[in-house]
Amino acid sequence: MSETPPIPPSRRDFLKIAWAFFGGLALLETTGIFIAYLQPRLTEGEFGSIINAGLVDDFPLNSVTHISNGRFYIVRLGDGGVLAVYHRCTHLGCTVPWDATAQKFICPCHNSQFDQQGAVENPPAPRPLDLFGVSIKDGQINVDTGNLIERQTFETAQVVYP
């Protein structure tokens, strides 16, 4: 039995492969440019950037305050800790109002309920209310609304202390 020597690709095959390769590359590049171009644009001082919520001492202990332009609540816990809770329901995106008498967040759309820390008390919400990154400097609360933190449960590590 004689082994057939491997046939080198003909000039025609080589050109075919080269065309396909560079054509595919061009397609990938243009798709990348297209998608990158469509990425959300951000404006300084608006939702999506770092938003100043005010002095930490202006929020009484055990209070929930809505910061409308930042779309979040500043939750001041009993021990002085601070959470910035996104006001958007994790189920289908409705705005969740704070019910002061029931001491709960109650979503008007599908009746999801969350406690003060944002943990789920009543489904259909699949996870607690999302948080934003909080930093406190010189008593000022700064909330990074571009830094959305999804969580499965409430943990004390999520709380920021002044």
Partner: peptide, 8 residues
């Protein structure tokens, strides 16, 4: 954006 109607 602050007030969701009920039902939405």
């Amino acid at each position: 954006p602050d007030v969701s109607p009920n039902p939405a």
